[in-house]
Write a protein that binds this DNA or RNA. Structure first.
Length: 430
RNA sequence: GUGAAAGUAGCUCAACUUGGUAGAGCACUUGAUUGUGGUUCAAGUCGUUGCGGGUUCAAAUCCCGUCUUUCACCCCA
């Protein structure tokens, strides 16, 4: 295929059963988040590059290697690689009265120029929330509960919350320095990547997958032991609030999250999905300074592709991807019947019924089209029926057919349609 | 950014090793039934073998490049 018929690498068209599943996921998410008092916020897909450089951190891989950056009219823009920074950019332009206690959620595409693989696309989709209430372990625990409720509303099971803390901002530098000092005697035992990490991103040594590195890390004191009492108490408080709410979790002292803006609580939610992308979602408490405003909040993001894959694996996707059948397929033989059906379709649709017809063709081909469409009923009219003022309504599932008077058609179809399965709720694109 | 595998009809795949007219199933169209779908039977359509170049009398097949997909790193949701 050529560039004219293929999407860009790592980006894909979402169609058919997949798009129906996604709409259901989005509607379900809106429902859950609304019950927690969150309002939808739609920020642009493009921002000034600096919005992300400031908040995510200019040494992170996301900023250094993965952002789609381009220049236009002397300004540098980028496609958003995540959702939090844009929401904070919005908040920073508002006054404190409008941001204190704000609860926003978002749903939409993000862009990172990484090498694609299972559960990782260059255009991917996240569902996330940001809560700007005054920092408190209570709020963090509530947000975690929300996230688990949402994942469970989608039907996911066997999820594990891995909970940890980055500590208060004042603890970051001392903790990193202490970790470097603790690792120094073992440098020769570490892998090449980890020796590089000591200088650049020392926390990443903690979650290295190589056995020798794991052995070294296992012998180190917990990272929290390098933090202040306040930081340890904060984590304990979050854990205890989770217990009160009955939300299961596990403390994972080796959990690391890469973006610079996190402080205190951080977490990931891991599913059982195959492959290396088992993290379905992540979140944490953060502090972001943009312009004159410094904003503290807590939030999470869920990878929609990964959730969809998990639903697929659990056998839950098919039910939500099923097409809603048409109420009716109109079959007409001859010009007069076709014109009559054309007019009838308009009033049926105005009445809320879904219907289609073929522009022509034999009785057989029209009936085949009706069958193939999955419509519940076929309405059949030819010269004879028009002359007699009637139409034949056939139930395509049972083969039963009844003859109706023309003036009774619409009412009868309404009644039958209402008795059948209700049509799916409407959804909005994102 | 690093390392590896794959791409043939609308779909799932065969033919590639050892170069010699590109095939099957499903799907699709039509007919058996001149006004009734699904099942059955019969016939038919279906391709610039991802794209571009090279080797050769001859390339789906061998070689090079490129695009895309997949997998593992890196990183992240």
């Amino acid at each position: 295929m050529s560039t004219l018929t293929q999407p860009i690498q790592g980006m894909s068209d979402i169609t058919g059963a997949e798009v129906r599943l996604w709409r259901w996921m989005e509607e379900t998410a809106r429902g859950v988040m609304t019950r927690y008092g969150f309002e939808e916020l739609r920020t642009p897909l493009m921002e000034h590059e600096s919005v992300f450089v400031r908040s995510i951190g200019d040494t992170t891989d996301v900023v250094q290697k993965e952002m789609y950056v381009f220049e236009k009219g002397g300004r540098r823009y980028c496609l958003r690689p995540e959702g939090t920074a844009g929401v904070m950019r919005h908040a920073a332009g508002l006054g404190p009265q409008e941001t204190d206690g704000a609860r926003w959620f978002y749903l939409g595409p993000m862009f990172r120029c990484e090498r694609p693989q299972a559960g990782r696309k260059r255009q991917f989709h996240q569902c996330g929330v940001e809560c700007l209430e005054a920092p408190s372990p209570v709020v963090d625990a509530e947000i975690l509960a929300l996230q688990m409720d949402l994942l469970q509303a989608w039907g996911l099971k066997n999820l594990a919350i891995h909970l940890n803390t980055r500590g208060a901002a004042a603890d970051h530098a001392p903790a990193a320095a202490a970790l470097r000092a603790a690792l120094a005697p073992h440098e020769a035992e570490l892998c090449e990547d980890c020796r590089r990490r000591i200088g650049q991103n020392v926390l990443r040594v903690l979650d290295c997958k190589n056995e020798p590195c794991k052995a070294v890390v296992a012998g180190l004191p917990a990272l929290t032991s390098f933090m202040s009492q306040e930081s340890r108490d904060y984590l304990d408080a979050v854990a205890s609030h989770l217990s009160v709410m009955g939300v299961p979790y596990m403390i994972d002292p080796l959990l690391v999250r890469g973006l610079d803006y996190y402080e205190h609580t951080i977490w990931e939610i891991v599913g059982t999905a195959a492959g290396s992308q088992s993290a379905l979602a992540g979140g944490g408490r953060y502090r972001i300074r943009l312009g004159e405003r410094e904003l503290c909040g807590v939030g999470f993001a869920i990878g929609m592709e990964r959730v969809a894959a998990a639903l697929e694996e659990a056998g839950l996707a098919a039910a939500h991807g099923a097409a809603v059948p048409l109420d009716l397929w109109l079959v007409g033989l001859g010009d007069a019947a076709r014109e009559a059906n054309l007019a009838l379709m308009r009033s049926l649709r105005a009445a809320g019924l879904s219907c289609r017809m073929a522009p022509g063709g034999s009785m057989k081909s029209q009936m085949r089209a009706a069958n193939k469409s999955g419509a519940r009923f076929a309405l059949i009219r030819g010269e004879d029926e028009l002359a007699a003022g009637t139409a034949n309504l056939k139930n395509l599932a049972t083969g039963e057919q009844e003859t109706l008077k023309t003036e009774a058609i619409e009412q009868r179809i309404q009644a039958i349609s209402a008795a059948a399965a209700p049509t799916a709720a409407s959804g909005e694109p994102t």
